[in-house]
Design a protein around this nucleic acid. Structure first.
Lengths: 141, 141
DNA sequence: CACAAATTATTGGTGCACCAATAATTTGTG
DNA sequence: CACAAATTATTGGTGCACCAATAATTTGTG
């Protein structure tokens, strides 16, 4: 590998980073971050999830989730409730404010997603997604 | 967007993350991280670079570079030298230890790169890289 | 030439991400 | 049933990444 720019891993990282910055920018108007959006998205789908299940679904370490949930609680978007049946578990629920953000945040992220893949046609996106998925699976172990 | 997994940004992030973990794992045997490798790589190409030029080349914020260079100095791989012509500037040089790592580290990362794209043929990689580059350029404002 | 503007590197603050260890609790096996 | 093993969430430590502000120095313009 002559130049670092020719390194596939480097290229992938830089592309991801640029895309991610775009999401950050738009979401910052709502005072949240991309990863916080993904958590809210799971909760709009189904409330009362365990933090460990959220972590697994998002492929994040359990210890990564804790401070992110803290910030969502602090911003009044979610709340932790003890599971009455198992005292180890915190179930995560949306607040009213968290529920209200569903439509505006989804609209915003739809826009971001569109602008990100602007200039690609349907078929290209499909191939691209397939490649990303295949590449990801390649790394499992 | 029904499920978060269908979000293109999310998929890209997760794929990058998995790939990046593979690099981390292998490089940890040398006590360095992927971003530290990229900096060393630039220095093997040309010593005595300004930190701001390293940052630009790697698309990193200047303030991100400082602590990474600190750690490389601490691990005895590089050293900062004052530019005699401009006292604002620190020029970054490799130590002997930093130079010695060129071959083993490059070999290691070549292996990682190969294992990452295993199962893809030449043509697919070319298309993939082109798409990543195009997508990246798409984000530049 | 003086002094505002630009450049360079750093500091301080925030927010992910990991791993290893811990505490509280529940599960499951002898 | 007792108690080791498993589960859940958290804490503490490390390492990127950003932005805004700062300090030191150099450049460039009136």
């Amino acid at each position: 590998m002559e130049k670092i720019e020719d390194c596939f891993c480097f290229l992938l990282g830089k592309t991801f980073h640029k895309v991610s910055q775009k999401g950050k920018e738009r979401l910052s108007n709502f005072g949240i971050t991309p990863v916080q959006f993904t958590i809210l998205h799971l909760l709009w789908e189904k409330e009362g999830q365990k933090s460990i299940d959220i972590a697994k679904r998002l492929h994040l370490d359990g210890s990564t989730i804790t401070p992110i949930l803290d910030r969502l609680v602090q911003n009044g978007l979610i709340e932790r409730r003890h599971d009455p049946k198992d005292r180890r578990i915190n179930l995560i629920y949306l607040t009213e404010k968290g529920k209200e953000l569903e439509t505006p945040l989804n609209n915003t992220m739809d826009e971001v997603n569109h602008s990100v893949i602007e200039g690609f046609d349907e078929e290209e996106i499909k191939v691209f997604k397939k490649m990303l998925t295949k590449l990801g699976l390649n790394q499992e172990n």
